[in-house]
Design a protein around this nucleic acid. Structure first.
Lengths: 287, 287
DNA sequence: GACCTGTGATACCCGGGAGGTATCACAGGC
DNA sequence: GCCTGTGATACCTCCCGGGTATCACAGGTC
């Protein structure tokens, strides 16, 4: 009685996300009535009201919000278990439980560091195979949580390290990337306020959970689009120093004096017990 | 197909712990054949061999060990979801999702600090009700993971903070607690080597996961037993400085010069989002 | 070597519950 | 008034989780 099937959790989380039984049922690939019943039964078993149904639309109660958060975490843990077990099952040879590691990296970030890390690790005896998994915008944390990755390069303050073990690798400043011809490109340094306040160059907006935040700037999906728009003089961008490695001829980089420093960490799920992972971390820490 | 029911996880974890289908089935309150089938089916669905059955006893494969670890974490997350939701459901009033917090504290430890914390927090406006949950030997981490507690006082290097957010509260040295009449009790300071090497006073052994580590010392289950055995001149113990608050007249405390300092932290699950918890943490950090 | 013991696997059966379809009850909006 | 869209209810079906009985097999023991 004090345990929940992942099926029930999945149902509830879907309903809580959609706030609509019909759509939730559709997403789950089932009909609406059994879903309604399942949620009712869940509420009875927990002895707690999770949803407030008021005849058009559904809202979460306080307990419902708690279950949404905790339930997501539990589902992530379950799918992580499956993924990591499958991964471990493929190569069940000697040298520890796992000899293939998936490393999540934000696409295009920390190029040079990543290169050095992979080279250095390849020289370690009994090195595992490293699969580099490019991650979308700031989703490295999710990838670690749900088992798509075993270890990640993360960047504060963009990624949150909460819940992971981590080791600091490097700190860098940030730069503004401007069209080469722009007046501000001639400056030696800039401040954040100067960059965000340029009327003719609104800051680009990145997709966040599939949606774009409101604002005047162009909508961006990948780095190449952004690079091009900058080159065309349509926008500016703020990036860590290491972004200099992919600048175009039409770009100019100007250091920002007051932007928060970006710290690159290597991070992994706190309870990990893998020799290969330990080696990789040790290698990274020595760079 | 990429998800597992908690029932299946529970079955596998139990079998992996017992390494014996019969006993596992008994612990699960079911018959052995359906358990065997469930595990076979699990292996088929994952496409991975989890157990090596060699006709007397069972051993874990590498993948099995991974699933044991990850599965335990997932099960903890699921039961935590239930516990926290139930707790939130009881008091679903204004002021955030939860206004009751369970604080896990190692029984008898940090008495004074705890007192100050509770007093200070009680003065906070809209303070939640704090339930102090005494925890067994170093099980605060488990209590946070499986939802029996929302926040804990933990002591490095005894507890591991891995996977939690935490804030440092205080640092203290360690002392040896000796029978008052013992020759070493007259010393101003001692070293760890001196204390552990006393031939007539073997160090007491604490139960760990229900079993006692091997060694010459007496087997201890709670602090009172230990205090009595010290008073009787049968054993010594090493404790943080704050243990002075419960010393008996027949005890003498002598500072240790080379024992690692004990740091008390307040720790909580990384993803927590509760106003009451945030207040408590802020209060603690200000002490 | 025959026998017993303890292991996990197989065969077969049964009942509960997950899921489907059809329908209801009700609140708003044109 | 009707129509629309919501979630809840009624009722049926069939799968699968679980039980019992039994097998297959490896080691001891005499």
């Amino acid at each position: 009685m004090d345990t929940l099937e992942t099926r029930e959790l999945r149902y509830f989380v879907t309903v809580a996300e959609e706030l609509h039984f019909g759509r939730a049922a559709e997403r789950l690939g089932m009909a609406q009535p059994p879903l309604s019943r399942a949620i009712q039964q869940l509420e009875r078993r927990l002895g707690v009201r999770l949803l407030e149904r008021d005849r058009r639309g559904v809202t979460l109660t306080g307990a419902g919000e708690v279950l949404l958060h905790e339930g997501r975490a539990a589902l992530d843990a379950a799918t992580a278990a499956v993924r990591r077990t499958r991964r471990a099952g493929g190569a069940d040879g000697p040298g520890g439980p796992r000899d293939r590691l998936v490393l999540a990296v934000k696409a295009g970030a920390s190029h040079e560091l990543l290169h050095k890390l992979l080279d250095a690790y390849a020289a370690v005896p009994d090195a595992a195979e490293i699969e580099v998994a490019p991650s979308g915008t700031c989703e490295q944390g999710e990838m670690l949580r749900d088992g798509r990755a075993d270890v990640a390069l993360m960047h504060t303050p963009f990624n949150s390290l909460a819940g992971f073990d981590s080791e600091e690798l490097m700190t860098e400043g940030q730069i503004a990337i401007l069209p080469a011809g722009h007046p501000l490109a001639a400056r030696g340094t800039l401040t954040l306020a100067e960059v965000t306040g340029i009327p003719d160059l609104p800051l680009a907006r990145w997709a966040r959970d599939g949606a774009y935040p409101p604002g005047p700037g162009p909508e961006i999906r990948d780095q190449t689009q952004l690079a091009q728009l900058i080159a065309l003089g349509r926008t500016v961008a703020v990036f860590p120093d290491s972004a200099r490695s992919w600048l175009w001829a039409e770009h100019t980089a100007v250091p920002l004096t007051d932007a928060p420093p970006v710290v690159t960490h290597i991070a992994w799920p706190a309870h990990s017990r893998s020799l290969a992972l330990a080696d990789l971390i040790r290698t990274a820490a020595r760079l």
